[in-house]
């Protein structure tokens, strides 16, 4: 089956090669095989599949990953909930909603 993909034109992911030390941590944590470590060099091979979860950015010791993870999940229900509460996208939290657990 073809891999599912979403809108790629709004993605903010980028890798600053000059800062990267090719440790490969991003390759290990990415859930969508966006990165590849080949010939001791890390590069982005599947940018379209990025969901901006932020795992690579958080685990990059070099700060070589540019990514705007935004203020919430890729979840329409959460955005609507946030709009009602007048807050950032939220799932109501574990004590309120039962959607996100």
């Amino acid at each position: 089956m073809e891999r599912l993909r979403y809108f790629s034109e709004v993605l903010t992911l980028d890798l600053i090669q000059e800062k990267c030390n090719n440790c490969g941590m991003c390759v290990k944590v990415c859930p969508h095989e966006v990165f590849e470590l080949k010939d001791k060099k890390v590069r982005i091979i599947g940018r379209d599949f990025c969901m901006e979860c932020g795992a690579c950015k958080r685990n990059c010791p070099q700060g070589a990953i540019v990514l705007d993870v935004g203020d919430g999940c890729g979840c329409a229900a959460g955005i609507i909930q946030g709009a009602f509460n007048g807050t950032a996208p939220t799932c109501g939290g574990p004590d309120k909603g039962t959607c996100c657990n």
Binding site: V10, L11, I79
Partner: peptide
Amino acid sequence: AMNFTGASTYTSLAGVKKEM
């Protein structure tokens, strides 16, 4: 169906905002 974006495993926030 739009609300199913949150249950899926591949949508970004920026993408969902664009869609909405």
